[in-house]
Every structure is written in C-alpha cells, then in structure tokens.
C-alpha cells in the first residue's frame, strides 16, 4: 500500500458517499444517471467475487463490502425510493452498447481463461467506460449541479491516483498489470474534458454548464 493507492481509495469512497448523501439529503436523484450506477454495481459485483474465495486483508475486505453496499443502495434509491425524481428522459445511453462488446473483449483479452479472472477483466474494462451514461446525460442537459460535479471529480481523480500508484509499484515492486493500466488510462482520459471544466468553472464558484 502506497500513498497514491490509499488516496485513490479514499477519493473513490468519498465520491460514492457524496453521491449517496446528495440523493438522500435532497430526496432527489435529478441529474444522476441510473444507468451509470447500474454499471458500477455490475463492476463491483463482478470484480469482488473474490471476497468469497480469497482473503487479502481486513482493509481490502472492508472497502469492498462498503463499495458494493453503497453501490446497491444508490441503485435502490434511484430506481425505487426516489424513483419519481429520476430523470429517465435524459438518461438514454444504451447500456448494451457497452456491456456486450466489453463482455466479448474480456473473453478475448485476459490474463487467464478462468471464470473469476474473466469476470475480473470484464469489471476492469466496464469500469473504464461506466461513467459514459452520466457524462452523456450532463452533455445532453448541458449542466450539472455543483454537488454532482464534486462527485464526478472525486470519481475521476481516483483512477488518476491509481495510475500514479501503478507507476510507483512498477519501480518499487516490479509489479504491473497491463489490463488494469490500459483500462485505467482510458478511464482517466474520459474525465479530462470534465476535469478542465471543473477546474475552470466549479472551483471558481460557478455552476458547471456547457456552452450551447
């Protein structure tokens, strides 16, 4: 465990909690893509199946359980508890356009052709693009609430910090996982445009709105 990885995990946790609290306290999931949240629930479920087979550390297990639990709680709030506030008209990204090609890719490009390994690979590839329905929704409506922007920033920052963790691990331990690195790069690049808007607008106290 190095500082980049810890900071990445904390950033990830913060993003998940910001989103949960935003929905819970405003009693509304307006502006949030339920589809991205379903994809994230699928990411955590397929990646953390090793909870049942492998014990890595107390920290590892605890974080996994929190991520999965919060992820399902978020989906439940969007599709059940606060369903009336869910903006489905603007959440029109087709999930199958991501899930099907990624399922195929994870069968073709993986470290080992074994069920758990393929599901892990699927989760890594899917995570890299799972935010697309949310970004699509923001670009469609042309704006995002400030709290939603904070959520997106923390979520994007997490993988960027993991990239630094992988550079660190390569030099410190000789460890590298090409699947995770390439997917992590793709994931971080998808956020770059948003990072730019966040820094130039939200951090200066303005609401995130896109030029018409």
């Amino acid at each position: 465990m190095n500082l980049f990885r810890l900071a990445g995990d904390v950033s990830h946790l913060l993003a998940i909690i910001i989103l949960l609290l935003k929905i819970w306290r405003t009693r509304s999931c307006a502006g949030i893509s339920g589809k991205s949240q379903i994809l994230f629930a699928l990411v955590f479920t397929t990646r953390y199946l090793d909870l049942l087979t492998t014990f890595i550390s107390f920290y590892n297990t605890t974080m996994k359980v929190i991520y999965i639990g919060c992820s399902y709680a978020t989906v439940w709030m969007i599709y059940a508890k606060f369903k009336a506030t869910y903006d489905s008209n603007h959440d029109t990204f087709r999930m199958e356009f991501l899930v099907i090609p990624i399922a195929a890719l994870s069968l073709l490009v993986n470290h080992d052709f074994a069920p758990l390994e393929i599901l892990w690979t699927f989760s890594i590839y899917l995570e890299s693009v799972a935010i697309l329905p949310q970004l699509f929704m923001v670009s469609k409506t042309g704006e995002a609430e400030t709290i939603t922007s904070h959520y997106l920033f923390a979520l994007g920052l997490y993988r960027a910090l993991y990239l630094m963790n992988w550079i660190w691990r390569f030099f410190a331990e000789g460890f590298f996982d090409l699947i995770a690195i390439v997917a992590g790069l793709v994931q971080t690049i998808l956020y770059c445009d948003f990072f730019y808007l966040y820094i130039t607008k939200v951090l200066k106290g303005k609401k995130l709105s896109l030029p018409a």
Binding site: R47, S57, Y67, H111, D112, D177, A180
Partner: peptide
C-alpha cells in the same frame, strides 16, 4: 503468476 491470481487492489 501468483500476483495476478490474487488481485490485491480495489
């Protein structure tokens, strides 16, 4: 490779 069988990151 044992490291890959055991994914220790989140």
């Amino acid at each position: 490779d044992e490291d890959l069988e055991k994914h220790d990151e989140l």
